[in-house]
Structure formats: C-alpha cells, structure tokens
Amino acid sequence: MTYRLHFPADVFDTYKQLPELARRDLALVLVDAQEDPLARSEPYGQDDGIIRTVAQGHVTAVLLLGRDTMTITVLTIAYAGTA
C-alpha cells in the first residue's frame, strides 16, 4: 500500500530552500519510502516503528509514520552540504 506524503508548511519551506541536488535526493528517498516506509527507512533512536529517518547524499529527514492514516509526515530536514 502506498502511504500519502505530508509536509508541514515550515518543513516544506526548508525543502524549497535546499540546493537542487539535495531536493532531488530527498524526493527520491521519500517516494521510495511511500511504498514500504519501514523497509526504506531506519529507526530514529529506539525502533518504535513510528519515528524513522531517511537519508541520501547530504540530506536527511525525520519521518512520522501514521499507520492508521497511511501517512508519512516529514518532521524535519537536515542538510550537511554546501549551498
């Protein structure tokens, strides 16, 4: 089943400010996570199956998995590259 992706407005603003390659990297890992978020992500701290991380290149995102609503919410984005 495909999960629906949700970006809060402030997190989407962060996404829009990323360099083009970082936006592409993040978009790719998020699209992959929509099919099977547990298989396509890593635990964030203790593995509770709810808070997860995805990373590619120089960008990482923390996700909240809503199993009942089939929603992935992007909680925060970190970029470790140069602008």
Rank of each mutant, 00 (worst) to 15 (best):
74 V>G: 00
79 Y>K: 08
13 D>G: 01
36 D>I: 05
74 V>H: 07
51 I>C: 10
39 A>R: 11
73 T>M: 06
22 A>P: 06
61 A>V: 13
5 L>T: 08
21 L>N: 10
83 A>V: 12
31 V>D: 09
10 D>G: 02
36 D>T: 06
80 A>F: 15
47 D>L: 00
25 D>W: 02
32 D>Y: 04
36 D>Y: 09
4 R>I: 05
51 I>D: 10
61 A>Q: 13
44 Y>M: 00
14 T>Y: 04
69 T>P: 02
41 S>K: 03
52 R>N: 06
74 V>T: 10
42 E>M: 12
70 M>A: 15
29 V>T: 12
64 L>T: 13
11 V>Q: 01
25 D>K: 02
62 V>R: 11
66 G>T: 15
63 L>R: 06
5 L>C: 02
13 D>V: 10
72 I>V: 12
12 F>M: 04
76 T>K: 12
18 L>W: 09
44 Y>W: 15
70 M>E: 14
24 R>S: 14
68 D>N: 15
10 D>Y: 06
28 L>H: 02
76 T>H: 14
22 A>D: 04
27 A>E: 07
32 D>K: 09
24 R>V: 15
45 G>M: 08
3 Y>V: 06
58 H>F: 11
79 Y>M: 06
82 T>V: 14
10 D>S: 11
39 A>W: 11
17 Q>K: 13
13 D>T: 13
32 D>F: 06
57 G>W: 07
64 L>C: 14
26 L>F: 01
60 T>K: 15
70 M>P: 08
81 G>D: 06
54 V>L: 05
29 V>R: 03
79 Y>P: 05
27 A>Y: 08
9 A>K: 10
46 Q>F: 12
7 F>G: 00
3 Y>Q: 01
1 M>H: 11
21 L>V: 13
61 A>T: 13
75 L>T: 13
39 A>Q: 03
38 L>V: 08
23 R>F: 02
4 R>N: 07
81 G>C: 04
62 V>S: 09
51 I>L: 09
50 I>R: 07
55 A>K: 14
57 G>T: 14
14 T>D: 04
53 T>A: 09
76 T>E: 13
41 S>W: 07
73 T>D: 00
48 D>Y: 13
73 T>N: 04
26 L>I: 04
50 I>L: 05
8 P>K: 03
12 F>Q: 09
13 D>P: 03
79 Y>Q: 08
25 D>L: 01
58 H>G: 04
39 A>N: 02
54 V>A: 04
65 L>R: 12
4 R>L: 04
56 Q>L: 10
12 F>I: 05
50 I>Q: 01
4 R>S: 07
81 G>Y: 10
11 V>N: 01
52 R>W: 11
82 T>C: 08
54 V>G: 06
72 I>H: 04
53 T>L: 13
43 P>Q: 11
17 Q>M: 04
34 Q>V: 09
71 T>M: 09
16 K>C: 07
20 E>Y: 11
32 D>V: 03
80 A>K: 14
52 R>M: 01
77 I>H: 05
31 V>L: 11
16 K>D: 00
35 E>I: 13
40 R>H: 11
61 A>C: 14
46 Q>K: 15
47 D>W: 11
28 L>W: 12
54 V>T: 09
28 L>S: 07
37 P>V: 10
54 V>F: 10
60 T>H: 10
62 V>I: 14
